[in-house]
């Protein structure tokens, strides 16, 4: 068995003689726990990237859905209707493999034009070595970054569809009189969209978007379906009963690990609530909504 490497405390060299708090200190700082701690970073990074990307997808979808050009409108409406209608888990299991194969197929067409063998051989999907994504000779981190990017893209497409629907509704909720006034001032449709509609729609979108954010926070365990080792994977892996082949044997401790996850997720949602509350107050300022009206009266 490979010995303990990279121990933080000097007394961790032989785990079998440790007792009490020293055992725990070494146990909680072993290589496996370190990987688990970094997976918290993975989840936060996923949220930090996915949220703005989903919002961008949603904005593009909503804009397309209310476009005056029919084909663009169909694309926007089709996107929200199809993606919202497919169960997340089916989407995550099917879509990632399909997306990966689509990328490899495209690269195969470009890089290996002289290839004669069929790409589908029975259940095998075979592209030339140069078309593999990432190349099988790439180091593991490249594979992990690629998997993570696929995860972000999939999350963004799914949550973008929901965001598109929220933003579409928010755009329609902006009082019609505002747009008429903009037109009366001689603004072009593009100007009135960007200067009047977009700045005012956020307060109407916020309740829907904040719901989406909360759901996104709780959906991060789906990462594991995409092959990314997230905090739920590590809680299960670390908490499971460990026999004598391990340096730190212990009984089934999954309850404690999942309890830690519970605290983490509750903390995250609490912080989100506080931030969203502030954002609501800020966006209500000067708006023709009951919230904005209440602020105006309080100030007067």
């Amino acid at each position: 068995m490979r010995g303990e490497t990279g121990a933080i405390f000097s007394y961790c060299t032989d785990p079998s003689v440790l007792e009490g708090w020293r055992w725990f200190a070494c146990y909680l700082t072993n290589g496996k726990h370190m990987l688990a701690y970094t997976s918290f970073g993975t989840v936060m990074l996923l949220l930090a990237i996915t949220a703005p990307v989903s919002l961008a997808f949603g904005f593009a979808g909503a804009t397309a859905a209310r476009s005056r050009i029919a084909p663009l409108r169909w694309v926007g409406q089709g996107y929200t209707a199809i993606v919202r209608g497919v169960p997340d888990i089916a989407f995550f299991l099917f879509f990632v493999i399909a997306l990966d194969q689509a990328f490899e197929w495209l690269r195969h067409q470009v890089k290996c034009p002289g290839w004669d063998d069929p790409i589908r051989q029975g259940s095998d999907f075979v592209v030339c070595d140069a078309a593999k994504l990432p190349l099988s000779s790439s180091p593991q981190w490249v594979h992990e970054v690629y998997g993570f990017s696929l995860a972000v893209l999939t999350f963004a497409i799914v949550f973008g569809a929901f965001a598109a629907n929220v933003l579409f509704g928010a755009m329609r909720a902006v009082p019609r009189a505002q747009m008429e006034t903009a037109e009366a001032y001689g603004m072009t449709p593009r100007q009135s969209f960007w200067r009047v509609l977009v700045p005012q729609m956020w307060i109407f979108a916020l309740p829907g978007l904040s719901n989406l954010w909360m759901i996104l926070v709780k959906a991060t365990p789906l990462l594991f379906l995409l092959g990314v080792e997230d905090i739920v994977y590590w809680a299960r892996e670390l908490g499971g009963m460990k026999g004598a082949v391990f340096d730190y044997p212990h009984p089934d401790w999954r309850l404690w690990y999942f309890l830690a996850l519970l605290v983490f997720y509750l903390g995250l949602t609490r912080v989100s609530e506080i931030v969203l509350e502030r954002l609501t107050r800020r966006l209500s300022h000067g708006q023709a909504t009951s919230g904005g009206e209440a602020m105006r009266r309080a100030a007067a």
């Binding site: 990328f103 495209l106 690269r107 593999k132 994504l133 990432p134 190349l135 099988s136 000779s137 790439s138 180091p139 490249v142 970054v145 690629y146 990017s149 696929l150 893209l153």
Partner: peptide, 17 residues
């Protein structure tokens, strides 16, 4: 994503892995 991953992968060596 395609160009990015492609660029990263291209930089790696070509041994039998």
């Amino acid at each position: 994503a395609l160009t990015l991953a492609g660029g990263m992968a291209m930089a790696e060596s070509h041994s039998t892995t």
